[in-house]
């Protein structure tokens, strides 16, 4: 067993169970909290490394919990759990440093892969970054540190390495939205869509910004939508 812990915050018992069982083989002890208040009460525990947080909970909602976590323990990484098709408030989550989303229902393999991906980011070495995926991961790491300009720079390096993939363009689009640069966001979502029309998050983001007055939810890749060839 490892020293550090993962905290699962969800009001639904079956999801807490499902996450605890899925994460067990990774070897990190898993703690659970049934709501935001209980989760915040556990933040004094210095061994918490990662929080898996449901955005939609009765009482204190996920974004509020995220805001408090980002104030009290900015070192903790957060994975956001959302219901299918509701990637609402993801731009707010990104502003608070949470870039990793997973949509319900997810398979145990997907949540394990995402957890390992998030935790491996801390060991990445910027000086040795040479490939698309590493730059993309460094961009996400920078978001976790609220360094949005740094994130933009890494995502743009990823694009330079492979302009035919959609993911980095989409991340650049999201980052421009965080930085209130709507036109640049649209431009990058469009580039992502052109690079890969089957990449759903870019299509959804483009639709959202170019219709309904641009006030819909933001769509960022979730583990459920990851390209199969990335595995």
């Amino acid at each position: 067993m490892k020293d550090q812990k993962i905290l699962v915050v969800d009001d639904e018992k079956n999801i807490r169970l499902s996450l605890s069982q899925a994460l067990a083989p990774l070897g990190w002890p898993v703690e659970t909290a049934v709501n935001g208040e209980e989760a915040l009460g556990k933040l004094d525990d210095q061994s918490i490394l990662l929080i898996i947080l449901d955005l939609r909970m009765p009482g204190m909602d996920g974004i509020e919990v995220l805001r408090r976590v980002s104030e009290l323990r900015p070192d903790i990484r957060v994975i956001i759990v959302t219901a299918y098709g509701t990637v609402e408030r993801a731009v707010e989550a990104m502003k608070l440093g949470a870039v990793d989303l997973i949509q319900k229902p997810f398979s145990p393999e997907q949540i394990r892969d995402l957890t390992q991906q998030v935790l491996a980011r801390d060991q990445l070495n910027e000086d040795k970054a040479a490939d698309y995926q590493t730059h993309l991961e460094l961009a996400k790491k920078a978001v976790g540190e609220r360094n949005f300009k740094g994130a933009l720079s890494h995502a743009q390096k990823a694009i330079a390495l492979d302009p035919y993939r959609a993911e980095a363009f989409n991340l650049v689009g999201c980052l421009h939205e965080v930085l209130h640069q709507r036109e640049d966001a649209i431009k990058n979502y469009r580039m992502a869509y052109e690079a890969d029309p089957s990449y759903a998050p870019a299509r959804e983001n483009l639709d959202r910004l170019t219709s309904h007055g641009g006030r819909g939810p933001i769509s960022w890749e979730s583990a459920g939508k990851q390209r199969k060839d990335d595995k």
Partner: peptide, 22 residues
């Protein structure tokens, strides 16, 4: 690289859980 190590470990863990179906 970190990513290579992570992929190997990921494969090992997933192999252990290979019998679990969706």
């Amino acid at each position: 690289m970190g990513i290579c190590r992570q992929t190997t470990k990921r494969r090992q863990v997933n192999r252990v859980m290979a019998k679990s179906l969706f």
